[in-house]
Design a protein around this nucleic acid. Structure first.
Length: 220
DNA sequence: CTCCCGATAT
DNA sequence: ATATCAGGAG
């Protein structure tokens, strides 16, 4: 496990690598962001961003999603994986927004998580990006990077990873660090081919050093 | 735990 | 061909 000094080193290095890391999902308000994050489950940001500009032109408010049939909405998001569940959740979410939240996305994470298709990770993203609340959304990248580096343990659940990160990172740095960890995981510490040979964190990364030994110094 | 699922990278 | 992608619901 990384000690306090190692954590500080990691935060410093990823700040150098990705000083301006931010949400890459196309959106222009909290409602669009929520839809985009819901769609992004088990899909790449690029795939979602390819779809949402046209989608948001057709569907501007919760009422617009309720005005079409489920089949029509499914067809409109068909290029995204899990599209049938997502279409149903979007419909439920919009109905709930109108019935319980005056048609607006709520700011509290507990309220966000009551919405269909919105779990802890999505709620954290919306609270953080749309409403500037300190939060660390643990997605596949944050989980993988945290475990490889040794910030948390391999067996930790997603919730345990989030709690560990919140404990080890100063609250005012939660949001920026969260985005930098995502960029680091997405573009450098990739799932299939991590660039350990060119990684500034190699000295403190147990998994990276293990990988370099097994490959005898050869890059991926 | 399983299921949902198309697009893209390896 | 297989793994992975800003997960969540049942």
């Amino acid at each position: 496990m990384l000690n306090k000094k190692d954590i500080a080193f990691v935060l410093d290095e990823i700040a150098n690598m990705y000083p301006d890391a931010e949400c890459e999902l196309v959106h222009s308000n909290p409602f669009e962001l929520t839809i985009a994050v819901l769609l992004s489950a088990q899909a790449t940001d690029a795939s979602v961003n390819k779809l949402t500009p046209k989608l948001f032109e057709k569907y501007k408010e919760p009422e617009d999603y309720l005005a079409v049939s489920l089949e029509e909405l499914e067809q409109d998001i068909r290029t995204i994986g899990l599209y049938r569940s997502k279409a149903k959740n979007i419909k439920k979410l919009c109905q709930s927004l109108i019935e319980n939240y005056n048609g607006e996305i709520p700011q509290e994470r507990d309220e966000l998580m009551k919405l269909a298709g919105v779990g802890r990770k999505t709620a954290n993203v919306v609270a953080s990006v749309a409403f500037d609340e300190p939060a660390i959304a643990v997605d596949t990248h944050v989980e993988r990077v945290s475990k490889r580096l040794g910030i948390c343990r391999w067996k930790d659940s997603v919730l345990e990873v989030e709690k560990t990160l919140m404990t080890k990172i100063p609250k005012e740095k939660w949001s920026e660090t969260h985005h930098r960890l995502i960029f680091f995981g997405r573009y450098h510490c990739k799932a299939q081919s991590p660039q350990c040979g060119e990684c500034p964190l190699l000295d403190v990364c147990r998994e990276g050093k293990k990988r370099m030994r097994s490959k005898e110094g050869k890059l991926v």
